[in-house]
């Protein structure tokens, strides 16, 4: 039986992918991308979890043998920042598209080069 964390992460990725495939509004597609990114981050963090262990901050009572895997958390720290950066860039592109075409519907936006 698959763990509920893996199930949730896969579901988030699929919901985001659905929004990207089906939705027509540019902003909804960007929201789908963000949901997908959250799913990927949740998956990476939950892979590093170890039953009954605590956060990898060594202090009194928490030795090196009582902490979860710190590497996925470091990877996710990087991934979150990159997600924020790409989202900001995509949102400003959406602002430009709306100013130029007056719509955010991807089917009405033609002549993207013009």
């Amino acid at each position: 039986m698959i763990s509920v964390y893996y199930f949730g992460a896969i579901s988030l990725v699929l919901i985001g992918l659905y929004a990207v495939l089906v939705k027509k509004n540019l902003l909804k597609i960007l929201i789908g991308l963000d949901i997908m990114e959250s799913g990927v981050n949740l998956l990476i963090v939950s892979i590093g979890y170890i039953n009954g262990k605590s956060a990898p901050i060594l202090s009194e009572g928490i030795g090196p043998s009582q902490a979860v895997d710190p590497i996925p958390q470091a990877l996710v720290l990087t991934a979150i920042v990159i997600g924020v950066a790409t989202t900001a860039l995509a949102l400003s592109a959406a602002i430009i598209v709306y100013e130029k075409y007056g719509t955010l519907n991807i089917e009405e936006i033609r002549r993207l080069r013009g």
């Binding site: 698959i2 893996y6 896969i10 990725v13 699929l14 979890y49 170890i50 710190p70 590497i71």
Partner: peptide, 25 residues
């Protein structure tokens, strides 16, 4: 989704999979 779940079935949840992580700790 089924394909991803099949792939993740080989990655047990909540078990110690650390190789480099233990060195860091």
């Amino acid at each position: 989704g089924y394909w991803l779940a099949q792939g993740l079935a080989g990655v047990p949840f909540g078990q110690d999979k650390m190789l480099v992580g233990q060195y860091y700790l």
